[in-house]
Design a protein around this nucleic acid. Structure first.
Ligand code: FES
Ligand code: FES
Lengths: 141, 141
DNA sequence: TATATACTTGACTAAATTAGTCAGGTTTAT
DNA sequence: ATAAACCTGACTAATTTAGTCAAGTATATA
């Protein structure tokens, strides 16, 4: 089980953005330099974030991105959902009544993986961008 | 984030095995047939489980595998550890003092991923094979 | 209005990982 | 003797990841 860098970068970039959010739009170039993330990759990520209304873009010179909601309204869930970082613990298609390995019934462990998935999603549901920023400031002091 | 099939199969197979454990050694062939997992793949998995003393092998005709500990002493953590299914949320090497992306310090989100990792591992730490079997029997009734 | 800055899009690719397969053993109960 | 079962290591196809690259479009400001 590993977190992909797309999800990791999305959160990193948003924390960075949130810190400067009130002053000016933040350019991806700045985030790229500060966080060491490829600009092209950031563009992919922010395109998705914009489509899900997590950020807003400001075009033109001195443009960049701004948060589209308050930091406490943006949960990790929303971010991961936007960049298609999804938690997948089961083998079978969730909706289908068929189990994994082509069997007609659910496998012995299906329930367990469902529980695990919920357990993980709980974590994402609870953490907001605001929490992360606070945590970050505290650590600096 | 996705669970790999190696981890998933390891648990499936052990639940299956645990159900017949008291009667006879359980052959991988039987598990393979019942659970729809390739025999060759099961052999890889059980080789690892045996090396970590989770199961014991009984050779020869009518042989197979038996649990090496009581079901309530086998945690998911032990199983995943044995088959190298590990939870990896951070980018950086944990031990090294260097952060990710070649930076000298930890990134903005390192703490968060650490928390996440602990959160997930808690789940694995709490669940034992016995829990799974009980859960399985309950669902049948 | 020229132009630099910044966003936007889509296609492409190298590397890594996963999910096995395959071949050729060795051991032991009957 | 022999068949059932375990054991080992190498190999591979498919998938996923983590980006790169090329070619734009939009707009603030001098
Ligand atoms: S994981 Fe859903 S049936 Fe096996
Ligand atoms: S994840 Fe550890 S420094 Fe970025």
């Amino acid at each position: 089980m590993r977190l992909t860098s797309k999800g990791r970068y999305a959160v990193m970039a948003l924390v960075d953005l949130a810190k400067f959010n009130d002053i000016n739009p933040v350019s991806l170039r700045d985030i790229s330099l500060r966080q060491g993330i490829s600009l092209d990759y950031l563009e992919q990520i922010f395109s998705k974030l914009r489509k899900k209304a997590i950020v807003q873009s400001v075009r033109g010179n001195q443009g960049g991105y701004v948060l589209n909601k308050k930091a406490n309204e943006i949960k990790l869930t929303n971010i991961f959902d936007a960049v298609d970082e999804k938690v997948k613990t089961v083998q079978c298609k969730k909706e289908s009544k068929k189990g994994c390995n082509g069997k007609p019934t659910k496998c012995l462990t299906h329930n367990l993986w469902d529980e695990l998935e919920n357990h993980i999603n709980d974590f994402f549901e609870k953490k907001s961008l605001e929490d992360l920023i606070k945590d970050n400031i505290e650590r600096r002091i």
